[in-house]
């Protein structure tokens, strides 16, 4: 007797859980020969709202962890991803990659996570400064996590696009809500499973699948989002996003598809706020300035 295939249900990832979209909508994803690969959740604005609530809740805990600990967790994501390499390669291939490209994309994603894991406790030192001031104050600037970041990740790259958009954001202590590629969403859901099994607290990364044309305005207008990273090239959407983002003066950063592979500490810095502190110089020794 032939065995029935057990097909995976691709769901979204909110607050460490895998719910279906509250709207009950889905879109069929087809392969090269028009065969049905999966029914994928068509997320609604309410899913986005719920995801933002989860991200906001998770923010205090994630941003107050030590950089070192965040680094350990990012490294753990890399380990888990490495362990499920074959699954990702298979998924990339049914979404149209060649075996070689697929294998490269997964290795590159793992390496990128390790790269950012290393930066977790180092970017602060790189971007902090002690500033000369003309009064008896000790004046220094340090980067701080911005808050909740909404991300519309690359349309073309199923896994690497997702990883490269998420990693620098969470490295910096932010939490995020990510819209995955509409035409290649399979890896995003599997990557959520990787996150779920790698000590990342629920709500730090939330992944939605669906249409940017429907959701981008909510990503841009929601008052509880502090920054938006846009990794696509639709000019109309970019204009729209920039307008909507004015409501609460969100920071908007746009990236082209070619940015995908390279890691950079400056991508961490994008989603940081620089906080400057004035501290009066204290008398430490008798009759001597302390600093």
């Amino acid at each position: 007797m032939t065995r029935l295939d057990i097909l995976k249900t691709y769901k979204i990832y909110i607050g460490g859980q895998f719910p279906r979209t509250e709207s009950g909508r889905y879109y069929p994803l087809t392969g090269r020969n028009k065969e049905l690969l999966a029914n994928v959740c068509l997320s609604s604005r309410k899913d986005f709202r719920n995801a933002i609530v989860a991200a906001r809740t998770a923010f205090a805990g994630w941003s107050s962890r030590s950089g070192f600990n965040r680094g350990q967790i990012l490294y753990r994501i890399a380990e888990m991803l490495e362990g499920r390499k074959e699954q990702f390669i298979a998924e990339l291939m049914i979404q149209g990659s060649t075996p070689k490209a697929a294998s490269e994309e997964v290795s590159c994603s793992v390496d990128l996570l390790v790269y950012y894991a290393g930066w977790c406790d180092k970017y602060q030192a790189l971007f902090s400064s002690v500033n000369p001031v003309a009064s008896s104050h000790f004046n220094f600037s340090v980067p701080e996590a911005m808050g909740v970041v909404s991300i519309i990740s690359s349309e073309e790259s199923s896994l690497l696009g997702l990883v490269s958009s998420i990693a620098p954001v969470i490295t910096g202590g932010n939490t995020c809500v990510v819209l995955a590629s509409e035409s290649k969403p399979l890896c995003s859901v599997t990557f959520a499973e990787v996150l779920n099994s790698s000590d990342v607290p629920g709500g730090v990364v939330n992944i939605l699948t669906g249409k940017s044309s429907e959701l981008h305005q909510h990503f841009a207008s929601h008052m509880d989002v502090n920054a938006l990273n846009y990794h696509r090239e639709d000019k109309k959407e970019i204009t729209n996003i920039r307008e909507q983002a004015c409501l609460n003066v969100k920071r908007v950063f746009t990236h082209s598809a070619s940015d995908v592979t390279s890691g950079s500490p400056y991508l961490i810095l994008e989603n940081q706020e620089i906080k400057t502190t004035w501290h009066p110089v204290e008398q430490i020794g008798p009759g001597k300035a302390g600093y």
């Binding site: 709202r49 933002i52 909510h218 207008s221 929601h222 008052m223 509880d224 409501l247 609460n248």
Partner: peptide
Amino acid sequence: GVYQSKDY
């Protein structure tokens, strides 16, 4: 029509 934040 816009989702709000506790900040405000």
